[in-house]
């Protein structure tokens, strides 16, 4: 997966500049360049196919609406990633408010991501669904940090950059987050 620390190309900067002047073809070029990895992150964060695609579309619509304010202090990919993460935060909060049960997710939502055998597929799907459900119940800061570390596979440096935190803080969040996750999974096991 593309990392947010990858440098931009000269062409990308030119597209951004043209896009700021309202050039839709340049915007289409930026979308084609970034849509896959943005979608990949969103899918891992929400684990629902249609929702992830809708959110990806919304990320780019928001980016287009705000691109004149983009001054290049951060990389364009980092800026897009922040928009996507903010959308995910909103989604997680609203999901929390609704107290939605991720176990009620449409059957097969995760099945298409799976590995060779049907049995393994089912087993892994259930396991991932269980841990995803447990993650939803964690305090926001731990949930986000674990999502970034394990679902988005970001380095600690990248997480520090995204969250605006020092390395020791991020390490502490991961350690405590894993502790919370373990307890949450045990609770779920007891309930079932």
């Amino acid at each position: 997966m593309k990392t947010i620390l990858e440098p931009e190309t000269a062409a990308e900067w030119e597209w951004v500049r043209l896009c700021q002047k309202g050039d839709r073809e340049a915007f289409a070029a930026l979308v084609d360049l970034h849509k896959s990895w943005i979608h990949a992150h969103l899918y891992r964060w929400v684990q629902q196919r249609e929702l992830a695609e809708d959110m990806t579309q919304e990320v780019f619509l928001r980016a287009f609406a705000r691109i004149k304010k983009f001054r290049g202090e951060a990389k364009f990919s980092t800026w897009l990633f922040q928009i996507a993460l903010n959308m995910a935060r909103d989604h997680w909060r609203s999901a929390e408010r609704r107290k939605s049960d991720p176990r009620s997710m449409e059957e097969g939502e995760l099945a298409d991501t799976a590995t060779p055998s049907a049995e393994t597929q089912l087993g892994e799907g259930q396991s991932r669904r269980r841990v995803f459900g447990a993650l939803q119940g964690l305090p926001e800061i731990y949930r986000e940090t674990l999502m970034l570390r394990y679902y988005s596979e970001l380095s600690l440096d990248e997480i520090c950059q995204i969250q605006g935190q020092g390395l020791s803080n991020v390490k502490m969040r991961i350690a405590r987050g894993l502790g919370h996750l373990r307890k949450k999974m045990e609770e779920q096991k007891d309930e079932s």
Binding site: R49, T113, L146
Partner: peptide, 20 residues
């Protein structure tokens, strides 16, 4: 936890072909 947090390599479904 390691097993549960592991992301399958072919984990992301493709976007619609007419997405852009």
């Amino acid at each position: 936890l390691s097993e549960a947090l592991r992301i399958p390599k072919a984990g992301t479904p493709p976007l619609s072909p007419n997405f852009t």
